[in-house]
Each structure stands twice: as structure tokens, then as C-alpha cells.
């Protein structure tokens, strides 16, 4: 469903991504693993169009989206949940969700605020609360829910477990597994290997902007050399 090929990206004059490539499919979870600064976030930002790749191809659902604008990419059904959450703090929970609303997509049962309150019960109790007056964990749930309002076929999640208490991380984990069960594809950028192990089907290890290893999650677990060399846990 999402194919990335030979992706190169720069920040200013710094060359961040060197020919990254991978394929992610519907109804499964792919995790990008790697150290801080390895290029995981830049990969996701390049896919959604926030960073303009200098070369390479990105195909989503049959459309070439490398160098397309973020709103066009989002309308094709690719959702993006940023690491910093970027909640609209002045808007209420409900209004945040409404900003994310896009027309229903054929073949998917459309998300509504009610369905999302069921997925994230914490949000249901806070619907009129301004986004700025929520805890970090609640904001993380809201940013995921807001992206789901666009009825994406695939979601890019950037470090959803960062800075959250372990109990909250377990709730995020449950939500990711629920989405996967609905057939939504997920690309996750993570440093937290414990978390990645629980949700991911396949993994791509990124080091210094290059994809250095890819394969099934079980295969990664059985490969101590990769752990020691790139993940260093």
C-alpha cells in the first residue's frame, strides 16, 4: 500500500536520508527502529510532505506522492501523528476532532467523535475541555484520534510512547492493535524496543539515514548482532 524507494532528504545542507526504502501494507504494523537522529522522524516527515525529498519515489495507494503537498497526501488517506502531538490547545477536544474530519472513504466505516470516544474512553469524559488543559497522555490519545477523523487507510505514528508513563503506553498499544484489526496500515517510528515488540509485525532498522536491516519482528528478536550494533539495548 505504501512503497518508499531510494528516498534522499536534506535539512538545509545536511544530508539526512540516504536512499531509504521499504514497503508497508494494510492491516499490519511496520516499525522504523533506530537511535535518536538516525532519520526515523525525517522519513515520516518526507512521506507526509513536510520535508521535501531531494530524490526517490513514494507510492501510496497507486499515487506518486514524493514532493506532493501535505494536504493532498493527507486527502489520499495517509494520516500523520507527529511526535510533538501538536494539539490545537485553544480548541476543545471535540473541535480538535472536527478539524481532522474528512469525507468518508469507500470501504471503511467512517470515524465519528462517538466511535473515537469509545476507543479512547478518557477523551469522552473531556469533550469540552481545551486541548491545552490535558495531560501528556490524554494529548497523545487526542492527536491519534484527530488523525483518525480523516478516515486514513494508513497512519504514520512518530514515537507515540515517548515521555509517557508506562500505563498510558499500554493504552496506546491497545489502540494500535484495534486499528490494525480494522485493516488500517500503520508505520511506527520508535526507540522503545519493548513497545515495538508488542505491536509490530515487521521492522526496518535505520542507522545514519540508511535502512540497514529489515525483516519480521520475530527474526529481529532472534538476531542479537543487529540489536548490539544498531539498537544497543
Amino acid at each position: 500500500m505504501l512503497t518508499v524507494e531510494g528516498l534522499n532528504s536534506h535539512y538545509g545542507r545536511a544530508h539526512i536520508l540516504h536512499g531509504i526504502g521499504f514497503t508497508a501494507s494494510a492491516g499490519s504494523v511496520l516499525v522504523l527502529l533506530g537511535r535518536n537522529g538516525a532519520g526515523k522522524s525525517t522519513t515520516l516527515k518526507s512521506i507526509i510532505g513536510l520535508v521535501r525529498p531531494s530524490s526517490g519515489h513514494i507510492a501510496f495507494d497507486g499515487h506518486e506522492i514524493a514532493r506532493a503537498e501535505p494536504h493532498r497526501i493527507a486527502r489520499l488517506g495517509l494520516g500523520y501523528v507527529p511526535e510533538e502531538r501538536r494539539i490545537f490547545t485553544d480548541l476543545t477536544v471535540w473541535e480538535n476532532l472536527e478539524v481532522g474530519r474528512q469525507p468518508p472513504r469507500p470501504g471503511l466505516s467512517p470515524w465519528t467523535p462517538e466511535r473515537l470516544y469509545a476507543l479512547f474512553p478518557n477523551l469522552g469524559a473531556l469533550r469540552t475541555r481545551p486541548g491545552g488543559r490535558m495531560s501528556g497522555g490524554e494529548q497523545q490519545m487526542l492527536t491519534i484520534a484527530r488523525t483518525l477523523m480523516g478516515n486514513p487507510r494508513m497512519v504514520l505514528l512518530d514515537e507515540p510512547s515517548e515521555g509517557l508513563a508506562p500505563v498510558i503506553v499500554e493504552q496506546i498499544e491497545a489502540a494500535i492493535l484495534a486499528l490494525k484489526a480494522e485493516g488500517v496500515g500503520i508505520v511506527l517510528a520508535e526507540q522503545n524496543l519493548h513497545f515495538a515488540r508488542r505491536v509490530a509485525d515487521t521492522a526496518v532498522v535505520i542507522e545514519s539515514g540508511r535502512a540497514v536491516w529489515s525483516g519480521g519482528m520475530a527474526k529481529l528478536q532472534a538476531n542479537p548482532a543487529v540489536h548490539a550494533r544498531y539498537l544497543a539495548v
Binding site: A165, P166, V167, V169, E170, E173, N192, F195, R198
Partner: peptide, 12 residues
């Protein structure tokens, strides 16, 4: 209960 959880996502 309130913080570490089962430990599954935080390294056991």
C-alpha cells in the same frame, strides 16, 4: 499499579 504497569512496555 500506578506507574510501572506490567513492565512489558518498559523493559520488564
Amino acid at each position: 499499579e500506578i506507574y510501572l504497569g506490567t513492565g512489558q512496555t518498559s523493559g520488564g
